[in-house]
Design a binder for these strands. Sequence first.
DNA 1: GTAGGGTTAG
Length: 862
Amino acid sequence: MDASSSSSSTPHALTLLTSSPHIAIMQVSHEHDKRIVNNKALGTLTDLLDDSSYSSRRTHENVFSEPSVSGRMTVDRTDCQTGVFSGVDTVNNTTQVGSVISTYRSLDTFEGVYGPANTSSIEKVQDILPQSRSVSDGQHQSRHFANRRAQLGGLPHQINEHPLNFIPEAHASNLFEPRKASEFTNSYAGGSYLRAGRLVPVACLRDGPVSKQKKAMNDHDDAKLIGWSISNLLSKENPENSTSANRAGLRGTKDVPDYLRRYNSLLIDGRLKDSVDLLESMEQKGLLDMNKIHHASFLNACKKQRAVPEAVRALQVMVLLKEAGLKPDCKLYTTLISTCAKCGKVDAMFEVFHEMVSAGIEPNVNTYSALIDGCAKAGQVAKAFGAYGIMSSKVNACGESGAVARAFDVLSEMTAEASESKGSKPILPDHVTVGALMKTCIQAGQEYNIKGTPEVYTIALRSCSLTGDLGFALKIYEDMNKIGVQPDEMFLSALVDVAGHARRADAAFEIMKDARAKGYQVGTIAYSSLMGACCNAKDWKKALQLFEEIKSIKLMPTVSMMNALITALNAEAQLGLDLFEQLKIDSIDLNPTIVGCLTGLCLQMFDNDLSLGNIVVTFNLGKPQIENKWTSSAIKVYREAISTGLLPSSDVLSQVLGCLRFPHDNTLTNTFIENMGISCDIPHHPNVNSLLEGFGEYDIRAFSILEEAASLGAVESISMKDTRILVDARKSKIYTAEVSVLTTLRSLKHRLAAGARLPNVTILLPTEKKQVGLDEREKTLKLAGRVGQAVGSLLRRLGIKYHGEESHGKMRINGLTLRRWFNPKLTSTSSTGTPADLLPLPSRLAKGIADQQRNIRNLSLE
DNA sequence: GTAGGGTTAG
């Protein structure tokens, strides 16, 4: 710490130091806007337009295409147009017109996000999208629709021609056949997650209002009508179906509740494949009622394992079992998209999305949120911005005044297109058409439920957070203002976070100041983020200043706030402890949050010293003790917390115990041994640890702290029976688990000294389940968690043999093994300095004497 | 019990 900063180590002093230069937000906004459009967005776009890079990045199509028209927004105007104006009854089918309009809107989005799209760039887009050839002659077009009809299995004319249902010709005839990745623009390189023909256009929204289009779909989507049935698809899909029941362990399963129990337990075990097999075998027996299946649990299980293909397969089962009462609707698709998003499978996500739209299900705000979220999570920020643009354009179209302008835009474009296209009659819309268009534009927003809510803008902000793109974030803020959506605290919190990631603590404070001035609600949520922003901006002075402010407005510090504060102080760890002293001076009660932050900080610093070999161990009457600043501080904080009546949390306990670990190194062990006056040859006596204080692993203060915590009820006591000892570490934190095991050993050592027989020791450990693919078959593996691994290596270090595997969650130490371990063969060089409780056991003493006698005899024989 | 926003660290 240099002189200037040490003078500022108290929060009060800092308040004076940190009056920062303020930078006007709007100015930042303008500058950044330009930069975004010029460098980032246009750069991405030009990449995309470059044929050579296209092949490897084809899924980037999603960046600028409205998925409901699948990358065809620049080229399918004629299709859309004829679909509306020459195909069917135009004016009465408002939904269709609305969709056309949304098609056009997506073009606007393209322009809105990436700047004006000139003709040549549009042509370039046409060139690179193989399915996007303009289809302007009537013959070609009718062939296209015929294909489309065939592929839909004879759905009504008007639906087939709906632009949303447009599917590239290349796919039309073979939708039921597995497609090659190259045939499917939106497939990822390894093939499609949604195999052809599996997710059929099924829209059966029995709940809520049903649009004309959806009604029509509803009336005609009966699976049987289009020539296939559940069972034949299942048998095609899974020729091993007869064995699936066996695989899922179903022999003997009879009734539905029994099946459902098994299904749930399979899910809990993470056996996803087996659980779908089980559903299928239930279906075969006619026992399946999808209303009784809790889909979210399944998808959550998928999420945990990042198992998108399983999620998709389950969705397929659901779709196939529609008749059994399931309604694959927007929500279900959105859930699936969200699952993909959470798993980081962007391609799968877009594929589901495209299928959803092909099925005539309108995405709503949640769907877009999930998409943006997924792109952002996967670091595909350009896509996230693209999805934001699409959604944003839909939101903008909600307002009535916007709708009128939009309607005229669309009309003029349509007219222009029509007059250009050969062989078509120019379309001159009358007042009825215009009226219908306007109505549609208004309805579009309502019907699609695309409303401007702070939530969705908040999600969009996350993309900016990842890149530290404050400019775009402020643009989003502006967008919101324009359409009159008031930011709420979470939005502001996210915005502040972006500023922090952009290393702009000043801007973060400015945003908060501005929000307060506008009278927006800002409380702990926003302040937590502001503290986080200080931390991200690596501005510990501002963090401390903010902490003062938080105290002054009587806001309760949150865990994240304190963590952020202390993290910000990381390089200034001493300040964290000074802060602790300052709290007492300010008579702020110690709370669990602050205690946790401080012990966490101490552990972090202790670990740092440990890794640098800076842990000093001193011997006091043969007892080794750690001399470390952070250890002392951790214990001090812990003691003070207990004295004010706080119950230590499991984290705090483990952190404090962690500060009492001895370093693992042989020189230290040798020093221990020398100090105990024992001489032995370590390579031949690995279990000499049994004689050491804390077994050479922990400072003995750890044991009293654990015992005290157990007596306070902060941690479960170890079950000590005469015949069996059980250490249940399934819920223990890592260092608590280690000290628990050592405590058990200590107590057994005393039992043995008292002449008792040693019982077996069982240790229960947490495990993690993971399903892995092995040759297309899946297997669930149990893996040892961190705690299990730590306990396993602890025992190995000590030289204690155990049965069982930590990965199975259970290990057992034999009583006899322990007895032997407690009696290492060694010789004592002196009897002085040996602590009383470490005096050799009677048996060992006797043996020691016998050894000595033998040695003397041997000497005399020589 | 069925989509659905933010914040620190690992």
